[in-house]
Write a protein that binds this DNA or RNA. Sequence first.
RNA 1: GGAGGGGUGGGUGAGUGGUUAAAGCCACCAGACUGUAAAUCUGGCGUCCGGAAGGACUUCGCAGGUUCGAAUCCUGCCCCCUCCA
Length: 405
Amino acid sequence: MSLNPAELQRITERGVSEIIVREEFIDLLQSGRSLRLKMGFDPSRPDIHLGHVVGLRKLRQLQDLGHQVILIVGDWTAQIGDPSGRSATRPILTHEEVIANAESYLLQFFKVVDETRAQVVWQSEWFGKFSLADIIDLTGRFTVAQFLQRADYAQRLAEQSPIALTELLYPLLQAYDSVAIEADVEFGGTDQLFNLGIGRELQRSKGQRPQQCFLMPILVGTDGVQKMSKSLDNYVGVAEPPEEMYGKIMSLPDALIVPYFDYLTDAPAEELAGMSRDIAAETVNPMNLKKRLAAEITAAFHDQPAAAAAQERFERVVQQRALPEDMPVVSLAALAEAGPRWSNALVAAGLISSVSEGKRLINQGAVELFPPAGPSRRLTEDSHYQPPEPGTAIKVGRRRFASFN
RNA sequence: GGAGGGGUGGGUGAGUGGUUAAAGCCACCAGACUGUAAAUCUGGCGUCCGGAAGGACUUCGCAGGUUCGAAUCCUGCCCCCUCCA
């Protein structure tokens, strides 16, 4: 089957930074053959966030055209650590941990990717049998100069920061995966350019047709500046509860609204252009667009009702500063012996982590009590704790709530 | 094997005997404001005791030592980087 130009454009451009080699890929796509789409997964990082979803959505689009996803569990490369990460040393996972992580990963992965057109394989299927001779063969096909071209290595060398010898093996192993599964296309962020390219070269030197490389744009995290990543804590995880997901998206800087729509939703291109215009002309309140974005993404990973509930909660708790409908319940009996002051009680209730923090928050006017009847009252000093009436709710800062019972 | 440089709070990075619970920046938290958990402004940001004023304790790779007093000096150890061989 052959794609019309509009569809072709959607596949090859929307949410895609670069395809190497674009013309070759299009030929393959139009050949009618079912392509083998390679995706790797590092089991030391089992959590999928929206940054990964950009690529997963592309996988899904291609699956819907009849192509096959091969997911590789990187149980060997996980032990090395991708050089694009900062820490050279990372804990070696036990086999059980790898299995547990893989299970959790797959659950998230198949929220986007179609399970019926996917196959999961483990690196150990081939690396388990690898010998020293194989390693020598592999390393003999590349030069140090080639590897030093890679930005990560070059930069770290220049900065005089350490590079473990094994790290140089990472791209090689990843490249060999492509050979092992005879990948037609591999997917990765733009920071994977080098690794994917090595895959191409290795396939060529092993007599296979070099894979096509899909480079996906790097999604900027909720801080609006840096790449979305778990370690920077600027991520939105696909397994997060609806209200968290919704709230985190609402905390995006306005400038990210359109890119997020672009990379993470099916909103038509014309609509995106309209949004950009409206935001620039200030004829729309960005908040409303952001609410729609948050609702769409939340619905994609949960469902429509959950997204609607998350939105209601946001409007209630964040915009109107009201109490949420469901709050954790704290037993008054447990607080009775906590200590003399409110800060002690708040620690016992699990709302804060130290007495000092409690004093600070109280002094800043961040702690407010809501009796079942009558007006609320703010604590203004860390005074002697007196048990509140059962049914009293407490608010600590903007997002911590509990009700006493 | 040799020579030199370095390891500071969540991150970065000042600090070379007391004025240092340790500058600045980032992140984070809170308050105000608001069209949003955006932006902006203000404040906070080790733990514990105290209503507060204030006090005590723990912290600068690890272990010892010198000193009235150490992140800062000495000794040993661990780790990292560069250059030479």
